[in-house]
């Protein structure tokens, strides 16, 4: 049974349709990417899933049914607009937010303390939030999202304003959570992070879903008739079936004739005595797919 089912949701604010007939499913234990350019309707979709907004039409099912206050306690949400009580001491604020997620006070104390140790924030536990650095506040925000051990994690732009060290830390943490069995919905426009972490994704553009499926499946679908080759020596000037070539990061991207097969190109090169270091089907990056899809949509419109 899918953990989250979004079924044809529509949401309009005034004259603007923020979300238009968006549908997707999130399976248990996967990292799911909710992608789209700024203003595409990602955050509105998340807010509808979390029952902050009601959809004008369509349905959302979370953990097998409608959202309830009990289910909200099983979700960890890291909103794009980060915020904690700036005038409160760090530990007190985190324990309060964990308590609000239904964790008993003694257990909240224990879990928050463990996370403070893990994130090297323990020496700052009595400091007010406003006295902490930005990086420390980001870590505190993560603790607030994770301390009640949620079954679903919904994180909006998790890497924004993070330095490389903290970015890596968040990535490790997300993998750790997935290994623990947590279902993760990651909302972002940073495609490289999605490629690295997500199993499946949906791409929203101007409120509508334009791409949906497994990461490999999508990349294969968008793959051009091309191979990526790196050789110890120069490649022959003429290769049957190859119509164009260009350099890409030290390799050669060979564009193939629509009728040519990559296997026949490989066989030709081996027979020609070329010492191959790399030969692979050229897959487009998610960035390229993203741009292609979005600009394609715009052209269609």
């Amino acid at each position: 049974m899918p953990t989250i089912v979004v079924d044809k949701i529509v949401k309009t604010f005034g004259s603007m349709r923020a979300v238009n007939d968006v549908s997707f499913e999130v399976s248990p234990g996967e990292i799911f990417g909710l992608l789209g350019p700024n203003g595409a309707g990602k955050t509105t979709t998340i807010r509808i899933i979390l029952d902050i907004f009601k959809p004008d039409s369509g349905k959302v099912s979370v953990l097998g049914g409608e959202m309830t206050s009990e289910k909200k306690d099983r979700i960890g949400y890291l909103p794009e607009e980060r915020g904690l009580y700036q005038d409160m001491p760090l530990q007190q604020c985190l324990v309060y937010l964990t308590n609000l997620k239904g964790v008993p006070p003694a257990e909240s104390d224990r879990r928050v303390e463990a996370y403070l140790e893990k994130f090297d924030l323990a020496p700052h536990r009595k400091k007010k939030l406003k006295e902490l650095s930005k990086g420390m506040q980001q870590k505190a925000q993560l603790i607030a999202t994770l301390a009640h051990e949620p079954e679903i994690l919904i994180i909006d732009e998790p890497f924004s304003a993070l330095d490389p060290v903290n970015t890596q830390m968040v990535k490790d943490l997300l993998r750790e959570e997935r290994d623990r069995g947590t279902t993760i919905v990651m909302c972002t426009h940073q495609m490289n992070q999605v490629e690295e972490l997500c199993d499946r994704l949906v791409l929203i553009h101007r409120g509508s879903s334009v791409l949906y499926g497994g990461l490999d499946e999508i990349r294969r679908k968008f793959a051009d008739q091309a191979v990526l080759v790196r050789a110890a020596s120069d490649l022959p000037a003429q290769i049957p079936g190859v119509t164009g070539r260009q350099n890409r990061n030290g390799s050669q991207l060979l564009t193939l004739d629509p009728q040519a097969k990559p296997q026949s190109v490989l066989a030709y090169l081996v027979n020609a005595g070329v010492v191959l270091e790399q030969f692979e089907i050229a897959m487009p990056t998610l960035d390229e797919i993203f741009i292609k899809t979005v600009t394609g949509q715009e052209l269609l419109e």
């Binding site: 807010r47 902050i52 206050s69 909200k72 306690d73 904690l84 700036q86 609000l100």
Partner: peptide, 12 residues
């Protein structure tokens, strides 16, 4: 001001 509203309304 603290931008805690979203966290709060997903908890209470």
């Amino acid at each position: 001001e603290n931008r805690t509203m979203e966290i709060m309304v997903t908890s209470v």
